[in-house]
């Protein structure tokens, strides 16, 4: 696969390490009353859809950036890629 790196353009997926569901970026609030249950869900329950999926790819043999890649898991079509720090920064 080719990953459209937002800074570096198309890069071969061999340079990346795959990390699955991008929900890992949204760590629960440890102070919340139901924190333990929220963490259990965060750690153990992931979506694995047949279709469009937002997922984490680490450009380990590249610029070491974490990307949020939107990919159709049934066709491997890639619909977009963003720097994870930008995604998180925008949300914060």
């Amino acid at each position: 696969m080719l990953i459209p790196h937002p800074l570096l353009g198309l890069r071969d997926s061999q340079e990346f390490t795959y990390f699955g569901d991008a929900s890992l970026m949204w760590r629960p609030d440890p102070e919340a009353p139901e924190a333990e249950a929220a963490f259990c869900e965060y750690v153990f329950l992931r979506d694995n859809p047949a279709g469009v999926h937002r997922e984490l790819w680490f450009h380990e043999q590249g610029d070491r950036s974490w990307l949020v890649v939107t990919r159709d898991t049934t066709t491997h079509e890639i619909l977009g890629a963003e720097l994870a720090s930008d995604v998180k920064g925008a949300a914060q």
Partner: peptide, 10 residues
């Protein structure tokens, strides 16, 4: 200039 993989090395 770029970083990439070469024979499993970075």
């Amino acid at each position: 200039a770029t970083r990439t993989g070469l024979e499993h090395m970075s």
